[in-house]
Write a protein that binds this DNA or RNA. Structure first.
Lengths: 115, 115
DNA sequence: TGCATATATAAGTATATGCTTATATTATGA
DNA sequence: TCATAATATAAGCATATACTTATATATGCA
């Protein structure tokens, strides 16, 4: 009668990664569509190495997948991760980050990498 | 048409606190009923100061409420916290911690403070 | 009043975290 | 094949975190 639960230790590990404004925003962005590193840099206004390091943590934990497309590397949410149900629920409770990308585009600010 | 969302910064702050095995277990315990410090010590098998310090973080952030009852101080979930929706969702995804308390009792292991 | 119990706080310490700057890697295109 | 763009990695550093041990505070009871 119980739905499947996420192991508490794994849950804590994932929540620790979600417990950072930068990473939470990144996940909010890839919730909708895959993004390349330069987009995160642009939206979050942070240095490229800093973004890369956050992405590495998320990837090492398996929360996001990466896929190279030529010059760019695109990140997307790994929906088959054990703790995905938690991530999904959390992301539903925070404001949609898609707006941030849209706002950028509408302001005519070109995203560094030409997509 | 949007449900109320939790501010991303506040969400991250709460998730950081949830991102620790000890604190996540504590919240899982107080989800059902209020608990006193000695119960956490017993269930988690950690030192009393360590537990107290975790509880202080949770209380400072407003995630739990404390209520003194004579010699004991009982902690309970603060269901009116801004980020409560997140906590609630997360706790639904992890195994019920109530079992741990039950197991203790059934094993005949007395909880330190007499309730 | 004085001792025991429950809890909090303080100080110290080892490790983790998140940035920075500098440099390496990989792919594109002239 | 060389320059440039996109990204990753490394090293260094300041700050945060989660314990430990020692001590303080508050309540209950003889």
């Amino acid at each position: 009668m119980e739905e499947t639960k996420v192991d508490l230790e794994k849950a804590a590990q994932t929540l620790k990664l979600l417990g950072d404004k930068t990473r939470l925003t990144i996940l909010g962005l890839v919730k909708n569509h895959e993004c390349c590193v330069c987009e995160f840099v642009e939206v979050l206004q942070m240095s490229q190495p800093s973004i890369s390091q956050h992405l590495r943590k998320l990837r090492d934990a398996g929360l996001v997948k990466e896929q190279r497309k030529g010059q760019w590397i695109f990140y997307s949410l790994n929906t088959s991760h054990d703790t995905y149900p938690i991530i999904q629920q959390v992301l539903e409770q925070i404001p949609n980050q898609k707006e941030k990308l849209k706002a950028l585009e509408e302001a005519g600010l070109r995203i560094q990498c030409d997509r």
